[in-house]
Amino acid sequence: MEEQEVKKIHRATKDDDDDDGCQVDHIPLDLTLEIISRLPAKSIARFLSVSKLWSSFTTFPSLINSFASRSSSLPPRLLLTFSLHGKHFVFCFPQNQNHEGFYPPFYSYQITNPKYYGIKLSESVHGLILLRNLVVWNPTLRRLLTFPQPQQTISLKDLPYLGYCSYLGYDPLEGKHKVLFMLRMKYTDQPRVFTLGGQESWRIITKGRCPMHSPTGGYGRCFNGILYYEAHDTDGHRIIMSFDVKHENFNLIKLPEGCYQLPCHMTLHEGRLALVPRSVHFGKLDLYILKNPNRDEWLHEKCFLDIPASVFFNGVTAAGELVFTTAKKESLSIVYFNPSSNIMRVALFEGIVGGDFRRRYGLSSYGDIYNISVFPNHSETLVSF
């Protein structure tokens, strides 16, 4: 099927490809895709602009799956974005290396269309990131997908006043991303869902699969095919909702007493859902671990950190390390802290904000970086839109 599609595209684009000296038709398709799948993601991304034929290769399921299989076997990466003098930049680094304090990025580039990049609504979910205004970003391919706003039973004129919440989840069994949508500050038991790559539009979740609740905004977190997000129940209590991305079932989880009034960061700790308050006071950090989800039983652990007061909490790695960032004019540091072993390590990035970097992009030597976003556990993907 894929080979027939290539032949059709090749015939339609023969004139364009003749100028490029393209000889792909002399190489078997399966061998071509195998060669491409072994290339770095930044090289594959360049194929998008070579010709229509080369661009079409990045949409083939066999290539996407082969690349995903190789990418998943590699150590996870840390994706970093920030702004400086009105320009926006993306960097990708090995997450579990850096014993010497500095290393070059795997890839980096400047964002040329910064319209949607200011506000992120998710972590890196199997290589994709949800941004504001129902936009999904693939940093590897540098592509954006804007979803249509759901219109069934929703008055669009009410959206600016009510607002809405959207969350990105991933089903590892079927390899599908899904976006969950509902109005904010409005109780519902029938959220909407959109499957990426499918032929469908927004669907309403079947009645009876979801308890009545109201989302509060903030990030959703997806672990092992389960999406978690903060909400209120019908009594006005803060809760966590869990959403099975594959089966589209919901479950309500009550918060521990110490988290009722505090915004928290959701993560996994030794395979279980854990909550970390987003504020760190005097080097002390509270960790709430869900012991039994059926009984809403939580464990409370305290961690003591010897880190500067100016750090910002940015999530947790797949290995259970808490991630913090701190930035200065000439450098940016990522602090990793493992609460289980009480071990801390620091990754210092001198080359991405210093003088050489600023001169390369024609930036002034004055001013600090801002809009720093860190995405632990990032994996490269060729998922196209």
Results as ranks from 00 to 15, higher is better:
Arg358Phe: 11
Asn65Ser: 12
Phe223Val: 02
Gly127Tyr: 10
Gly208Thr: 11
Ser71Asn: 05
Leu168Val: 09
Pro105His: 15
Glu100Gln: 02
Gln261Glu: 15
Phe312Met: 01
Gly208Ser: 05
Ser331Lys: 12
Gly127Glu: 09
Asp16Thr: 13
Arg11Glu: 05
Asp25Arg: 08
Leu255Asn: 01
Arg203Cys: 11
His126Tyr: 11
Ile154Glu: 08
Ser69Met: 13
Gly163Thr: 10
Glu301Phe: 06
Leu63Val: 04
Ala231Gln: 06
Thr234Cys: 05
Tyr164Val: 04
Ile289Gly: 07
Val316Glu: 03
Asn251Cys: 10
Met1Ala: 13
Ile154Met: 07
Leu79Pro: 15
Ile205Asn: 10
Leu31Trp: 08
Ser73Arg: 12
Ser43Ile: 03
Asp30Lys: 13
Thr317Asn: 09
Pro105Met: 06
Gln4Thr: 05
Trp137Ala: 08
Val24Gly: 07
Leu227Tyr: 12
Arg142Gln: 15
Thr325Gly: 07
Ser51Asn: 01
Met241Trp: 13
Ile240Gln: 04
Ala231Trp: 14
Pro308Cys: 04
Asn96Ile: 04
His237Ala: 11
Ile372Ala: 09
Ile27Ser: 06
Glu123His: 12
Leu121Gln: 03
Ile129His: 12
Val245Lys: 09
Leu78Pro: 01
Trp202Gln: 06
Met1Thr: 12
Phe93His: 03
Gly127Pro: 07
Met212Tyr: 10
Leu252Pro: 02
Val316Met: 00
Trp54Ile: 05
Asn113His: 14
Asn342Ala: 11
Lys302Cys: 09
Ser71Gln: 04
Met266Thr: 04
Asp18Ile: 06
Tyr366His: 08
Tyr103Asn: 00
Glu2Pro: 01
Arg142Met: 04
Thr81Gln: 10
Asn138Phe: 02
Tyr116Asp: 09
Arg345Phe: 02
Gly197Ser: 05
Asn98Arg: 08
Phe223Cys: 00
Ile129Met: 03
Ser166Met: 12
Ser51Phe: 07
Val316Gln: 01
Leu78Glu: 05
Phe312His: 15
Asp30Ser: 13
His378Leu: 11
Phe93Asp: 01
